[in-house]
């Protein structure tokens, strides 16, 4: 009968191993990067209008949870990713520095929206607006838009995942084939 063996053996075409034995051959870098990029937990850091689009990305139509970042952590101590969504003012900038330093390594920053990229529409006469969050925090991915569509944020997120997939453990972090 068909059900003699409890599991059907699956031949992996790439490496020719039998998956049923529970053995995978890979490099440490790839394994760590696979774990990190598929479970990025963002910190709830919505400042202004872009925060609403971030919430819409997390809702059911443009689901962000299928990329692994379902758990929006309120505390920075448990978060991997800070999506700076909205205008950064000078009063808030000191707090952003504190929050970024409270996040444990490895940590990543996505700058979402025109205000976080370069000051946005307030660049000309904004005396209280910080012209871009990269003045205080190192940014990995910039997502343009005012506000960016949820698909644009997802595209930025996937770009960050590709960037993480190219990290190297023993060499410099960002020196890799992108």
């Amino acid at each position: 009968m068909q059900y003699d063996e409890p599991y059907q053996s699956v031949e992996s075409s790439e490496k020719g191993i039998r998956m049923q034995d529970g053995i995978i051959l890979t490099t440490v870098d790839e394994f760590l990067n696979w774990g990190r990029k598929n479970s990025l937990w963002p910190m709830t850091f919505g400042l202004a209008c872009c925060a609403i689009e971030m919430m819409a990305t997390g809702a059911s139509k443009y689901d962000l949870e299928r990329f692994g970042c379902g758990a929006f952590m309120a505390t920075p101590r448990r978060a991997d990713l800070m999506i700076v969504a909205g205008t950064v003012t000078l009063k808030m900038a000191t707090r952003i520095e504190t929050l970024f330093s409270q996040m444990p390594e490895p940590k990543y920053v996505i700058s979402m929206g025109s205000c976080a990229n370069k000051g946005g529409p307030y660049w000309q006469h904004g005396y209280h607006v910080l012209k871009g969050v990269d003045e205080i925090v190192p940014v990995d991915v910039y997502v343009p838009g005012c506000p960016p569509r949820p698909e644009a944020l997802l595209d930025g997120f996937i770009t960050l995942q590709k960037k993480i997939a190219n990290e190297r453990l023993l060499r410099d972090k960002w020196v890799a084939n992108v």
Partner: peptide
């Protein structure tokens, strides 16, 4: 408050 003060009234004058 004031963490999102984006100087709208100054923009409106210009």
């Amino acid at each position: 408050i004031g963490y999102l003060h984006r100087c709208f009234e100054k923009h409106a004058e210009n």
